[in-house]
Write a protein that binds this DNA or RNA. Structure first.
Length: 273
DNA sequence: AAATGAACCTGTTTGC
DNA sequence: TGCAAACAGGTTCATT
């Protein structure tokens, strides 16, 4: 579920349902997901009032009127639902945060690759999950000059570099392929062997594909959260991802798939060099 | 230093 | 039909 656009859409969907609501109780159905869950949230969160839900990279940040910040990563299959507290626990539900208004924030995650932690507002930027992260792709510091600098001298394939969160956050397996198609750059090309002009195009492509995805997914995921339980999904508009063997919309050649660093990459030999 | 691959889990799809 | 293999939107850790 969670690419940067989808995490952002989840954030926007949760925001109005949580802000100003007071936590009543927290239930943990298991000790750990990918990592041990912060058990102290059971004692620390009740009584606090949600003040905002923000995002850094693919992490959701639940902030309160005081006290800790709850950090949450959805992994591959994590989902948040806001449901009535009378709703019985769904399959693969692991955590429930009950609010005094009768609603509950429920976390489900079939593969349990998600993880959560507690921090403080002051310690957040230095937290080990955030300290090494690159810039936000939709922010001003992800510039052509920046990416040119990060590509220089690197022999790593550009697609693998794009997915490195130390370089830039939020570009997952889908959008790396899609941005490279939009840029006309072959995903296997060495990062250091791409002209400055083409890197400049790539920066714009990353921005455009992510912001278009946010726009396209917004209403769908918002409904999914508010409806409480219905599986939501993006109406996909992929040009290469998942289209192996199908004709390129641009040149008609067959879309190819290859594996880079264990992940599927989709591309068009006619359009990407 | 840099790049690759395995590991963490379960569910779904594909292929014999 | 049945079963096994391959594959899945992410990140970290160990190994070349």
């Amino acid at each position: 579920m969670p690419e940067l656009p989808e995490v952002e859409v989840v954030r926007r969907g949760l925001l109005p349902l949580l802000v100003d609501q007071r936590v009543h109780s927290v239930t943990l159905m298991r000790d750990k997901l990918r990592f041990p869950l912060p058990g102290s949230m059971v004692q620390e969160l009740p009584g606090l009032i949600f003040s905002s839900v923000s995002r850094r990279s693919k992490y959701l940040l639940f902030c309160f009127d005081r006290g800790p910040v709850l950090i949450w990563h959805l992994g591959m299959t994590g989902q948040f639902h806001v449901l009535d507290q009378s709703t019985p626990p769904g399959a693969h539900e692991h955590v429930r945060i009950n609010m005094e208004n009768g609603a509950a924030l429920c976390y489900r995650d079939a593969r349990r690759f998600g993880y959560a932690g507690l921090s403080t507002p002051e310690a957040l930027t230095g937290h080990k999950w955030f300290a090494q992260l690159g810039p936000e792709p939709l922010g001003g510091s992800f510039s052509a000059d920046y990416l040119i600098g990060r590509c220089k001298g690197r022999r790593v394939p550009i697609k693998v570099l794009l997915m490195n969160a130390h370089v830039v956050v939020g570009v997952g397996n889908i959008y790396a392929s899609e941005a490279l198609f939009r840029s006309g750059i072959h995903p296997g090309r060495a990062a250091g062997n791409i002209s400055k002009a083409r890197i400049t195009v790539l920066v714009k492509a990353v921005r455009s594909v992510l912001s278009e995805a946010i726009d396209a997914g917004g209403s769908t995921i918002s409904d999914f959260v508010q409806a409480g339980g219905k599986p939501g999904y993006f109406s996909h508009q992929f040009r290469v991802y998942g289209r192996e063997g199908e004709p390129c919309y641009q040149c008609g050649r067959s879309i190819r798939r290859m594996v880079q660093s264990g992940r599927s990459t989709f591309y068009c030999l006619g359009c990407q060099h």
